[in-house]
Write a protein that binds this DNA or RNA. Structure first.
Lengths: 80, 80
DNA sequence: ATTAATTTGGGTAATTTGGGCT
DNA sequence: AATGTCCAAATTACCCAAATTA
């Protein structure tokens, strides 16, 4: 893969999203198929995911501070 | 430092298209060779790509909430 | 602890993509 | 920075079994 220049932080690869969620890349693909996650397709058919959306779903932990309890079981948006 | 004049962005370089799709420039060249992406050749043989076409393929979502009902899995851009 | 449901992961085959080199 | 070719890794899609949840 290519490096991660801060400017290109717009899209994420399946492997990157999978690593962030601690799941298999195949599971991320399944979320995209189910419409739970927005996916952009490359011209070859591979998927790319919006970094902003993934961060939001992960709880969007900004930085060193502010690591408070962010409702662990309050948003079953994906577990339906 | 006007590296990329916004108004004159009719054409994009391979590196710019690659960054937008989160792929390698080599992959963009492959798309052009496969006829999946319109490419204009410079007199030196290098390729340039139409910004409008690239934006359309990416989904063209400019603002915060623009394409709300943008079906992610409705575009089989695959050419296999 | 039981069933029943969904979700997730593993396997294989085919294509696409990325890295190194020219 | 971009091109072209070779080869390995990643991703895709399909199947079915295991894990998780209610």
């Amino acid at each position: 893969m290519a490096s991660r220049p801060p400017e290109a932080d717009e899209l994420l690869t399946p492997a990157e999203v999978a690593a962030l969620f601690r799941v298999d890349p195949k599971t991320v693909t399944r979320w995209a198929k189910a419409g739970k996650l927005t996916s952009i397709r490359t011209l070859g058919g591979h998927r790319r995911y919006r970094a902003a959306e993934v961060r939001a779903l992960l709880g969007d932990i900004p930085g060193p501070r502010a690591g408070e309890a962010a409702a662990s079981e309050a948003g079953p948006a994906l577990g339906a």
